[in-house]
Structure formats: structure tokens, C-alpha cells
């Protein structure tokens, strides 16, 4: 085991072979200059890292319920403030929440919004795998358009999810927080830079990280880095940051790859390549193009 890499989050967790979030967790926590306290929503990360009687966490870690990870960390942060004023605990501690997209986009949105509005000093990290992967691939509001999931199955009459993804970054930006960024697990240098900025920010900071799911997106276990890279290269998952309401794109190319290159790597989009679903594929391409344009317009 690489001791340096595993100083916060050890081996021995039971995440699927080829899962993306251990790299995200280790990279982000590795950038913290101070000791960290972690709160976690219910999700893959929670169930795989805390198998009784073992815990993969070497840092203080709290899980209370699905919807209230941000509320929990708010309380912890306030308690730390009170105790450090009395000199009972170390002065400098960073507070981090890890949530999946289900616990952030859907179930934990209300408590996240509350914590951002109250301005607690913490970093919220969402690892976005586009669904409730822990319980077997049910759709969430982060699931992309036309993806095949258990609750939006592909059949004679249906082509997968009919709604678009929720734009969480805009919701977070609407709280006027100082720093929010979208990152990707395949671009670790960029993720590190963003994590460092998030830890330096006083008050809430938000990171949304792309995290491919080998089991439910249906691709070979070895491919998560390649697929995450394609997501950015096709503009499906642009890298950008919002500092004091100002948008900045961190990675762009003159000639993005066609979105099909990203879609064809995964079983959940397999049906898009049939003759019947050609209009759906065109719609996916249009959505990706429009969203990118929307983002570019905001940077000006």
C-alpha cells in the first residue's frame, strides 16, 4: 500500500474494481494543508468505505443520513468554532463533505443550500456518476439525457431518460459563494489546483467532479480514466470554475471530438446507435453543443 497516498483514505475499501472515486477522495484530501473532518452522504463511498468492523478512513468521519451531510458538517464546524475559542481543539481544521449525485442533486439539495447560504467554512465535493449506482442504477437528476437506467429502461417505446440534467453549478452559483468549480478525475492536476483553491477559500466552496461508474455505465473496469478524458474532450463535461460569480473555462479545444466517441464507450448509451434512435442521438449532440455555448456565453 502506498502510505503517502493512503494517508487519509486507506486500501481495503470495497468499491468496485476500477471505481473512480478513491482517486478523487485521495487527490482532494491530499491538498488540504490542515487536518480534515469528513461528513458523507449515503452512497457508494459511504457503504464501501465503512464495512463494520473496518473503516478505511484515517480521519474523523461522520455519516448520519442521506439528506443531511451538509447540515451535519455545519454543526461540526460551529462546534469547532466554539471549542477552539476555548482552546480545547486545534485551531485549524478543514471540513469536507463528500456526496454522490443522488445525495447532492436530489436528496441533499435542501441541506446543501442551507449550509451554503449560512456561509459555513467547508468544502463540498460531489462525485457525479449520474445515478443511484449503489442501489442498482436508478435515475437521478444528474443522469444525462437518453441514458438507460433501471427506472428509465430502454424499450420499444422509450429511449431512456427523457429529461435533461439539472444544472447544479448554476444553483450553487446562485448562493453567491466565493468558489465553485467543475473538475474531472482524468485531469488530476486541474483537480488538485481546484481543491487547493477550495481549501483556501474562506466560507463555503463547491467542487463537482466527474466520476465514471464501471458497473452501471457498463464499460470494462480498466477504462475509467479514458472515458472521463473523452467526456471533457467532447465538451460533454467542460472544466470550469466560478470565482466570485465570474466564469472561467479551464480546458477548451478548437475542435472538440464528436460526442459519439464518448457515448459509444458505454453500454448505457448503446441504444442510441440504432437506426430508430437517430433523432435522439441528434438531440444529445444538440444538448451538449447548447450547454457548451451557454457556458462560453457566461465567460464573457
Amino acid at each position: 500500500m502506498n502510505k503517502n497516498l493512503a494517508k487519509n483514505f486507506a486500501s481495503g475499501h470495497s468499491a468496485c474494481a476500477g471505481c473512480a472515486f478513491p482517486a478523487i477522495v485521495r487527490t482532494i484530501l491530499g491538498e488540504s494543508p490542515d487536518p480534515v473532518v469528513i461528513s458523507n452522504t449515503t452512497g457508494c463511498l459511504e457503504v464501501t468505505s465503512t464495512l463494520y468492523p473496518y473503516t478505511a478512513w484515517k480521519t474523523p468521519y461522520i455519516h448520519s443520513a442521506f439528506e443531511n451531510a451538509s447540515a451535519t458538517i455545519s454543526g461540526v464546524e460551529q462546534a469547532h468554532k466554539a471549542l477552539s475559542r476555548k482552546g480545547k481543539v486545534p485551531k485549524k481544521i478543514k471540513f469536507v463533505v463528500f456526496g454522490g449525485d443522488g445525495g447532492t442533486y436530489d436528496i441533499g439539495l435542501q441541506s446543501l443550500s442551507g449550509a451554503l447560504e449560512r456561509g459555513h467554512d467547508f468544502v463540498y465535493v460531489v462525485y457525479d456518476n449520474g445515478g443511484y449506482m449503489n442501489t442498482g442504477n436508478q435515475r437521478s437528476s444528474a443522469t444525462p439525457y437518453a441514458a438507460n437506467t433501471e427506472t428509465t429502461p430502454v424499450g420499444k417505446e422509450s429511449f431512456g431518460k427523457v429529461e435533461m440534467r439539472k444544472n447544479l453549478m448554476e444553483i450553487v452559483d446562485a448562493h453567491h459563494i466565493k468558489y465553485a468549480a467543475q473538475a474531472n478525475v482524468a485531469y488530476l492536476a486541474d483537480l488538485k489546483k481546484k481543491a487547493r483553491k477550495a481549501f483556501e477559500t474562506e466560507g463555503p466552496a463547491f467542487l463537482s467532479v466527474f466520476s465514471p461508474c464501471t458497473n452501471n455505465w457498463k464499460f470494462p473496469t480498466s477504462q475509467y480514466v479514458a472515458i472521463a478524458k473523452l467526456a471533457t474532450e467532447t465538451n460533454f463535461w467542460p472544466l470550469f470554475e466560478i470565482e466570485d460569480g465570474k466564469y472561467k473555462v479551464n480546458w477548451a479545444t478548437e475542435n472538440p471530438k464528436p460526442v459519439e466517441e464518448f457515448l459509444k464507450t458505454q453500454g448505457r448509451f448503446k441504444h442510441l446507435f440504432s437506426e430508430k434512435n437517430k433523432p435522439v442521438l441528434d438531440e444529445v449532440k444538440k444538448i451538449v453543443k447548447d450547454e457548451w455555448q451557454r457556458l462560453v456565453d457566461k465567460t464573457e
Partner: peptide, 8 residues
């Protein structure tokens, strides 16, 4: 090294 999910 950093991409290994098990830090192996």
C-alpha cells in the same frame, strides 16, 4: 500511481 483505486 494516483489513478490506482486501491493506492496499491
Amino acid at each position: 500511481v494516483p489513478f490506482c483505486p486501491e493506492a496499491s
